[in-house]
Amino acid sequence: MTKQLIVRGAPQEYELKAHAWDSLESHLNRRNIKNVLILHGEKSWEAVKPYFPELSITAAYHYYGGQCTDAAAESFASLCNQKKFDGIIAVGGGKVADLGKFAAYKAHLPIIILPTLAATCAAYTPLSVVYDEAGIMLRYDIFPKASDLVLIDPAVILASPRELMIAGIGDTLAKWYESHAIISQLAVKPIEVQVAEFAAQKCREILIAESTAALEAMAQNQLNQAFIDVVEANILLAGMVGGFGDEYGRTAGAHSLHDAMTVLPGSHQQLHGNKVAYGILVQLMIEENLTEIEQLLPFYHQLNLPTSLAEMNLHLTEEEYQSVAERACAPGEMIHLMKQTITPDLVIQKMKALEAFTQE
């Protein structure tokens, strides 16, 4: 199996510390950035305003629009050219970060990311997941340049919604199962792939051992080491898996299932990481690894991660099963990196088998 292996290991600079955002202007000055576009979310921006520092440089604040689309990236890149911005700061969750990276790539500008959540590794990775206006996932674009800076204040993420942290745990847990499905097929593992495998193993190890304590920190609004560890597993370690492993460590069955489910309008009410967590179980069904599913189910139940379509209030018709399965198995989908021969019929069979298995 020969896949692309280009290392995109990390942002140019990454810093997690208390009051990290307070150093934003000094970072901008070091880069000679004097006129910035600041993209932000809606509810998240209202929540994190108290943490965001006053800037003495010129800054224009814009709500990002709710989705990372080609049109949005083109619009903000055009705005950057018109207003002669010399940098972009993305403040928010994964979609804000993805749109910021995409627009910065188009406008040939540095991108600085201030995460408000630990729900994905988007802040760390030099790629953007692109959707259409209806919320259907189209593709992901990988950029030849890493983000310039990621600044994480753990207090900001401590105050974020608990359900988004849980979704991040579900998304990050997939790093081990998806990368293992691919890497386990290799007779010889390049050093880069070994680094990706180590990071993926650490993701699973930290999340299984420390997620409960991390969520307790959120409930008590009191930082602890478990919380810091889970945040960095969801952002840094998760980003390293694809950053060093490239196509050997990026995605396989679980994310293909997630992407396919976006064709169902009802699925848009579910968080990305919840759908990925469900996809892990379908992937394990395809691998006929019922033992691992049984070991994971108590962890899923403890965190209230979905173990079935029914738990996501998704009751599919035969036509909807077919639509999801065909999308999951489309040519070029990462599900085909698994060693099994994947067909729509097999995906439907295993999705239904998971429903039965989790209801027993």
Rank of each mutant, 00 (worst) to 15 (best):
H62Q: 13
A71I: 03
E319N: 00
Q222H: 14
Q185I: 02
M218R: 12
W45Q: 06
P53V: 09
S44V: 05
E360K: 15
A146E: 14
T291S: 14
E247G: 01
A72H: 12
A119I: 02
N224K: 09
G170N: 11
F357I: 08
R30M: 08
P306L: 01
T172K: 05
G243D: 06
N304T: 07
D246K: 04
M351Y: 12
I183G: 10
I280F: 11
A10K: 12
K202P: 01
A187T: 13
Y131L: 02
E311N: 02
L257H: 04
Q359K: 14
M165I: 06
K106F: 01
K3S: 05
T58W: 01
P11T: 10
L158Y: 10
G249Y: 07
H180C: 07
K101A: 11
V282F: 12
A59S: 13
I206Q: 12
R327G: 00
S23P: 00
Q194K: 15
E192G: 07
A328G: 00
A199C: 10
L296Q: 12
A167S: 15
E319R: 02
L127G: 05
L99Y: 08
L186F: 09
A59D: 01
Y64H: 12
D70E: 13
P144I: 01
I166H: 11
V188H: 13
M218Q: 15
S267N: 12
P306Q: 08
A73Q: 06
E320V: 00
H62V: 04
V130C: 04
R204M: 09
Q269C: 02
A155D: 12
H27S: 06
P110K: 10
A200M: 11
G170D: 10
A119V: 06
T172L: 02
E326L: 00
Q12C: 10
A60M: 01
Q359T: 14
L79G: 11
V195L: 12
Y105V: 00
A104M: 07
Y14Q: 12
K84D: 10
L5W: 03
K84N: 14
M165A: 11
E294D: 14
Q12V: 12
T125H: 04
L55A: 05
V91P: 05
T116A: 13
C329K: 05
A20V: 08
H108L: 01
F227D: 15
L109R: 04
G168E: 02
S308R: 09
T251I: 04
A181I: 00
A325E: 01
S179L: 02
G253R: 05
S128K: 04
A219L: 08
D98K: 12
K202Q: 14
E319A: 03
L290S: 14
W45F: 13
L151N: 10
E294Q: 15
F143K: 04
A71H: 06
A196C: 09
E42L: 00
A310Q: 01
G266N: 04
G273R: 09
I136F: 03
R139G: 03
F102R: 06
L271A: 14
A97W: 01
